[in-house]
Design a protein around this nucleic acid. Structure first.
Lengths: 136, 136
DNA sequence: TTTACTGCAAAGCATTTGCAGGGCG
DNA sequence: CGCCCTGCAAATGCTTTGCAGTAAA
């Protein structure tokens, strides 16, 4: 979108591009550090915020409150277990048409969408009805 | 799903049912208090957690990290502005078929799904490119 | 120099947890 | 009588913010 980017933003985009999955701000902070692109945690958050508003990256907020960041690219949707929190990617996406429609009808400028299914994974379905089941 | 419910859980379900929109745990805590169903905040969270695992309520976590709870019922999807955070409901939902399919192929027991579009609302598109725009 | 970016450390907030008291079966 | 539910308060963990130093134009 915009070309005006800080060095930090560029470095973050590079790391995100090399990764093939979404990553949390905290982990991104660590990974940048490993790659000699050391920067403060606050800077990481500020850069991510800017990139988000540009529409350059997409964010998925987990039920835990932690957010995962990734480049805007393919659709990656998820099937998430409410108990163990594990989530797996889904390939299908029946939403493109709707997105195009919304762009017009609501005059929104849509960057991306998220689609997530919640339930219990096979492993958690049988186990601890009350609690327990820290297994997966 | 399960019948075994505590008084707190019942009261929460009642409040949620009367409401026609999702509510945060904090606000739910206040609302319960107003209706003489006073209970501790921790109890509210614990009850919500239990109801969530039962599949009786659904949760949507906002980019802010705050979670909104509502009864599992109709599909309610959203169009959310990345800048001002305001979100509006969407009526269409092209996802039912896919959900049925996933139930089988992944052996998940799916309770519900969320579909959310992110971008900039009409109001925020023009404004503060860099920042500003606390308007909406 | 002038402005924007950065780091560090101090908050801020929603949520979770430990523990002891209390209610219900 | 025993166990689960609660409340309170402390603690967690992610994220945000204030402020002063620094780099870039």
């Amino acid at each position: 979108m915009k070309a005006r980017r800080t060095r930090s933003q560029e470095q973050i985009l590079t790391v995100l591009a090399d990764l093939n999955q979404a990553i949390s701000a905290q982990n991104l902070y660590v990974k940048l550090r490993e790659q000699q692109h050391t920067m403060g945690l606050a800077t990481v958050y500020r850069a991510l915020e800017a990139l988000k508003l540009e529409g350059s990256i997409q964010v998925r907020t987990l039920p835990s409150g932690e957010s995962l960041y990734s480049p805007v690219q393919q659709d990656r949707h998820h099937l998430t277990c409410l108990q163990c929190g594990k989530s797996m990617a889904i390939e299908q996406c029946p939403v493109h048409d709707l997105e195009a429609h919304l762009n017009q009808s609501h005059q929104f400028k849509i960057f991306y969408h998220t689609l997530e299914f919640f339930g219990l994974c096979p492993r958690c379905q049988g186990e601890g009805e009350g609690e327990g089941a820290v297994s997966c």
